[in-house]
């Protein structure tokens, strides 16, 4: 290209006399497969990848906020591994820090209701409550998504109403009912309540998901001779797996974290669920921070790890559940 006249059009007159200049065009073979910067040393690349000032500032602000946001949990964790005297002196003082698992040990064997037993109880209640809700939920959601039947709108409205209701509203009726059935203060009673309570949102959530599955798939299966049950088992269930995982993660977190239902329906200390035990650990004179912290860490570890591993399903489910 001529430096003194960069605007001179090229190629335009090439056909009318002068041939085009081959040097003007690069052959595709000259184009490198990877960007030349990739061959630079790591040092240069790191320096170059440091973003411009404004963007850098944005990163600094974002990271600072995110870290500040979890400081309370860091404090909780620090308290769980330090003796009470050091916690009262301030967990943020790091000099002379003693790491101890005494708090965990004491929480695990806590006299009123050992955390070990409480965590086991929580699993015993949570796992069936999640699995049954998933199965019954997807079964009930299927007709809502595909069939017309009487009372459909009424049922739909009832589900919405229950979703808006506070858990306290169903406590009185269920309290009397469970005592009537002899299920009060039993695993089964609490599991049934969680199933009944969770079904509302699960049916609604899965119905919305099933509406998005093309009906042609089912029609094709019907032409192939599949019955309604076969279609459900072989087409609907496999296709709704992602939504079912979301349901599982969110329902698990909800049941595991629930405090009010166990508080009302579990009265024997040996049946206490983990969240129920934590407020009892406060002690009378001096709050037993170490004990509470260790118990809290053990209780929250399960849903938090579940979230971290299945983050995508959790977030997607959360968004879909409320946005639909």
């Amino acid at each position: 290209m001529a430096e003194d006249d960069p605007l001179e059009p090229t190629g335009i007159d090439a056909g009318s006399g002068r041939a085009t200049d081959h040097d003007q065009y690069l052959s595709v073979d000259d184009v490198p497969d990877i960007a030349p910067t990739a061959e630079l040393s790591w040092r240069t690349r790191i320096i170059e990848s440091i973003p411009a000032k404004r963007r850098a500032l944005k990163y600094v602000v974002a990271i600072t906020i995110a870290v500040l946001w979890i400081v309370p949990f860091i404090g909780l964790f620090m308290a769980s591994i330090r003796p009470l005297s050091e916690i009262i002196g301030g967990w943020w003082h790091l000099e002379g820090m003693t790491v101890t698992f005494e708090n965990y040990y004491r929480a695990w064997n806590y006299s009123t209701a050992p955390m070990g037993q409480a965590l086991l109880n929580t699993f015993i209640v949570t796992i069936p409550a999640v699995l049954v809700v998933m199965l019954l939920g997807v079964m009930a959601a299927y007709p809502f998504a595909r069939f017309e039947f009487p009372l459909k709108t009424t049922l739909f409205f009832l589900i919405l109403l229950v979703m808006a209701a506070p858990p306290e509203l169903i406590a009185m009726g269920n309290f009397n009912a469970l005592r009537e059935f002899g299920l009060f203060d039993t695993y089964m009673g609490l599991i049934l309540i969680h199933i009944g309570w969770g079904l509302g949102w699960v049916v609604l959530f899965l119905r919305n998901y099933l509406l998005g599955i093309p009906e042609e798939l089912e029609e094709a299966a019907r032409i192939d001779g599949a019955s309604r049950y076969q279609i459900f088992r072989t087409i609907i269930l496999p296709l709704s797996t992602p939504a079912l995982v979301s349901v599982a993660v969110i329902q698990f977190t909800w049941v595991w974290n629930a405090f009010f239902f166990p508080l009302v329906f579990m009265r024997s200390p040996e049946l206490y669920l983990a969240p129920q035990v934590l407020p009892l650990m406060r002690g009378r004179v001096q709050v037993e921070w170490g004990l509470i912290a260790a118990g809290s860490i053990m209780t929250m570890a399960v849903p938090v790890l579940l979230f971290l591993f299945l983050e995508r399903y959790y977030k997607r489910g959360m968004v879909a559940a409320v946005a639909d």
């Binding site: 019954l136 079964m139 009930a140 007709p143 229950v162 509203l169 009726g173 009912a177 199933i195």
Partner: peptide, 19 residues
């Protein structure tokens, strides 16, 4: 499809509200 889920939903969610 509907009865198992709706029964539990009815007994443990709708009925207590009506109650």
């Amino acid at each position: 499809f509907l009865v198992p889920g709706l029964t539990l939903f009815g007994i443990f969610s709708v009925a207590p509200i009506v109650y």
